[in-house]
Computed example of a mutant assay.
Amino acid sequence: MGDLLGVAVLGAGHMGADHIRRLDRVVNGARVAAVADPDTDRAKEAAAGLDGVTVHAEATAALDAPGVEAVLIASPGPAHEEALLAAFARGLPVLCEKPMVPDSAGALRVVEAEARLGRRLAQIGFMRRYDAEYLRLKSLLDSGRLGRPLMLHCTHRNVSSPPYFTSAMLIDSSVSHEIDAARWLLGQELTAVTVVGPRPSANAPEGLADPQFVLFETDGGALVDVEIFVNCGFGYQVRCEAVCEAGSARIGEDGAMLVTERGGAGVEVPQDYLVRFADAYDREVQSWVDATRGGRVTGPGVWDGYAASVVAEAGVRARESGGRVSVELAPRPRLSADAGR
């Protein structure tokens, strides 16, 4: 165990439990040293069968547990700021699931705290940057082969939304992935957002504005539109098409197994993001472990987390007002300049 990176996992829910499994069974060079969750029974269940793991109700107790050298934050978004600052205070490298911090003021405090350290410690979990299809699209756009990007058309559909989901969360939780993916794919900042929507689907819970249509403008003159539909009922689908001056490219066309049997044929449709992006999560965490063991921090940084929070807040205001809302980012600290798009 001494040669393995000891990781404290904060949060043992759906995402946290999957990361615990991933660190134990998939990723090389790391082990789970501690798990923290207010529901200690859930934490114990997630850590069952793992040697040398301590279970805690408080995040800070897990950070101070024996053998902890790094932190993976998979707790609910409102708990992230405190956990990130606590990790920074201990000099612990962090992989933090999105949203880094749900509100932009808190996200900026995290950016400023890391800048005061004078070095990067945090990677933010925008896993689409590690998905094979997104990486191919990024490489193609960067090559210039298709010319200047003009538009990104994005689709983001879930089978159903959790009972606590609000209309704002369609943007600040779900569309936050498209916000980061657009910034990364295009190498541009998002400067304004408009949100409209049809009459809510009959499948949407009472009071939930679902689906919604989100339109972003960029500082490079491109447009990005996102259909977010979190109660489509039939599957989990994420698609993106880049339309450029000399061609287009589309990813996410459900390249799954085709099953043919008596009476018909059908393509399997993923029902969950952990299925659709399993390989991306594996590559993301492996990359983080490898970099951390080498004393480095790579991937999307705290500035990317901050930018996503600012754009998402503007999107929520646009939905509520029915108008176009400009995005205003704070000055970017020098430390974050190498961490972004």
Rank of each mutant, 00 (worst) to 15 (best):
D18M: 15
D18S: 15
H19N: 11
H19M: 14
R21E: 07
R22N: 10
R22I: 04
R22P: 01
L23R: 04
L23K: 10
D24Y: 07
V27C: 06
V27T: 15
G29C: 12
G29F: 11
A30H: 03
R31I: 05
A33T: 06
A33H: 08
A34Y: 07
V35L: 06
A36G: 04
A36E: 06
A36W: 05
D37S: 05
D39E: 04
D39F: 03
T40D: 03
D41F: 04
R42H: 09
R42I: 07
R42Y: 04
K44E: 15
E45W: 02
E45I: 04
A47R: 04
A48E: 15
A48P: 10
A48Q: 15
A48F: 14
A48M: 15
L50Q: 06
L50I: 12
G52W: 13
T54C: 10
A57T: 03
E58W: 09
T60H: 09
L63Q: 13
A65K: 02
G67D: 13
A70E: 00
A70Y: 06
A70S: 13
A70F: 00
A70W: 03
V71H: 10
V71K: 03
I73N: 03
A74T: 14
S75F: 01
P78E: 12
H80W: 10
E81T: 14
E82A: 08
L84Y: 00
L85A: 05
A86I: 05
A86V: 04
A86P: 08
A87N: 05
F88K: 02
A89H: 03
R90H: 11
G91V: 11
V94H: 02
V94T: 11
L95E: 12
L95W: 15
L95P: 12
C96P: 03
C96F: 05
P99W: 01
P99N: 07
P102A: 09
P102I: 01
P102H: 00
